[in-house]
């Protein structure tokens, strides 16, 4: 059976939280429900499932790759063309630091920019059940469920004081 989504629009955070409680009581799983807002609310405001993030991975891997590459470049070039200056060691860390810092930073920046696109689950070409009034402050509670459960979700939204509902 195909999955459908239904959106309930609410005017206060309390109503949004009540709707989410109602959906859980009606048997909907946390991963089936999502809250859509025009501004970030404090975590757990609606009693919603708090998603785990792994956002640090991209910059961390980027930084490690950049650092490794820079150590390789600076070490390899200095060993390939050994020039002893003032009795100082061939591999002089202070001379290598600038390049190591810059390559680490650049690589971390580039991978973070790439990470923004991937981790935000963007681009999302199909918005699903959505209403433009969300960016005007209304709170959307969306359920992705089987078609047969749509009426059950709609009843929960109406009971919680939804201003409007939309299906997609």
């Amino acid at each position: 059976m195909s999955k459908k989504s239904i959106l309930g629009l609410f005017d206060t955070p309390d109503q949004g939280a009540d709707a989410l409680d109602g959906l859980h009581n009606a048997g909907f799983e946390s991963h089936e429900c999502d809250v859509l807002t025009g501004t970030p609310y404090p975590e757990g405001t609606f009693g919603e499932h708090v998603p785990q993030h792994r956002l640090f991975r991209f910059p961390l891997f980027g930084a490690i790759i950049g650092l490794t590459l820079s150590i390789f470049i600076t070490t390899a070039t200095q060993i390939a063309y050994p020039l002893v200056t003032g009795g100082k060691p061939i591999l002089s860390i202070f001379a290598m630091l600038i390049i190591m810092y810059e390559m680490t930073m650049l690589s971390a920046v580039v991978t973070t920019v790439v990470g923004i696109i991937f981790e935000s689950r963007l681009p999302k070409f199909n918005l699903g059940a959505y209403d433009t009034r969300i960016t005007e402050g209304l709170i959307g509670v969306v359920v992705n469920c089987e078609e047969k459960d749509l009426s059950k979700a709609k009843k929960v939204f109406t009971d919680s004081g939804a201003l409007d509902t939309k299906e997609a």
Partner: peptide, 9 residues
């Protein structure tokens, strides 16, 4: 790019 304001976004 499809930003709708979900928690994870």
């Amino acid at each position: 790019r499809g930003f709708i304001g979900t928690d994870s976004q």
